[in-house]
């Protein structure tokens, strides 16, 4: 394994909060909300549909939180001077960036898998094996958009603002993107807002796959657009940062 990759992974792994918010909390939400609101469902089919939708939402919530949490940390490394220190070792800058992306992508997996397992074994969500695999794979790939967003925010904001942004951004994306409360229950205006957020389209991918179909082209296109925009902006901001790295 690439030594920098192992090093970064170990650092995030030490962070208990990270594991709590990206794995444990979405898993607990999945159980709790399905048990509470699933109780209002009329029949078993309704309950099954609710459990599936809510599980997909929580998979998306956990994954986007993990992607942001793992990448916004780049801001802390800039503030501590570690990024600059790393730039004067023989490690190429391209590997540093590649490792950031890889760590972000890898860390979205535990949340996805654990929430899926909770959906399956605790809430009794019943999907064909291939659908399960496709669901996890699609949401995993889609989380790339939030890895890019996290890198953008991490490079753009200073340490304190970035620390706050991890929680706030995750909450906004989840709440307004319809991950906590389905957009069907949103008032008209708020629903329009949801449609401008990557988190809505991300969950939409998952819902399409869980329903047994392929993701809608519109959802794929929207999320890919967000991902590309975030990545380009992140690269631009990071480059500007490099130029202004030293003021002394």
């Amino acid at each position: 394994m690439n030594p920098l990759f192992a090093f970064q992974l170990r650092r995030v792994g030490r962070n208990r909060q990270f594991l709590f918010f990206t794995v444990l909390m979405p898993a607990l939400f999945t159980v709790f909300f399905t048990k509470v609101f699933g109780g209002f469902a009329g029949d078993a089919a309704d309950r099954q549909a609710y459990a599936t939708t809510y599980m997909v939402s929580m998979m998306a919530y956990g994954a986007l939180g993990a992607a942001l949490g793992a990448t916004i940390r780049v801001s802390f490394d800039r503030a501590s001077g570690w990024l600059r220190q790393l730039r004067i070792t023989p490690v190429p800058t391209s590997s540093v960036v590649a490792v950031d992306v890889a760590v972000g992508m890898l860390l979205t997996l535990p949340g996805l898998v654990v929430v899926a397992a909770v959906g399956r074994f605790v809430n009794g969500v019943d999907l064909p094996p291939l659908t399960w695999a496709a669901l996890v794979a699609v949401l995993w790939l889609g989380s790339g958009a939030f890895v890019a967003l996290g890198l953008l925010v991490g490079h753009a904001l200073d340490e304190k603002a970035a620390g706050g942004a991890i929680g706030i951004l995750g909450t906004i994306l989840a709440a307004l993107g319809g991950l906590w409360v389905p957009v069907q229950l949103f008032p008209e205006a708020l629903r329009a807002v949801a449609h401008t957020l990557p988190s809505y389209w991300y969950a939409e991918l998952g819902r399409d796959v869980a329903a047994g179909g392929a993701p809608a082209p519109l959802a794929v296109l929207a999320l890919a657009g967000f991902a590309a925009a975030f990545a380009l902006l992140a690269a631009a901001v990071a480059q500007r940062r490099a130029l202004h790295a030293v003021a002394g």
């Binding site: 030594p3 650092r11 501590s80 600059r84 004067i88 070792t89």
Partner: peptide, 29 residues
């Protein structure tokens, strides 16, 4: 790997141990 430097605004990463940082840098060289 021809240059080593102590920067005025250089630093060490959080959530890591000294030995891990040194091992990483030594391996990079």
């Amino acid at each position: 790997g021809c240059v080593g430097a102590m920067l005025q605004h250089g630093g060490l990463p959080g959530e890591a141990r000294v030995g891990e940082v040194l091992a990483l840098v030594r391996r990079s060289f």
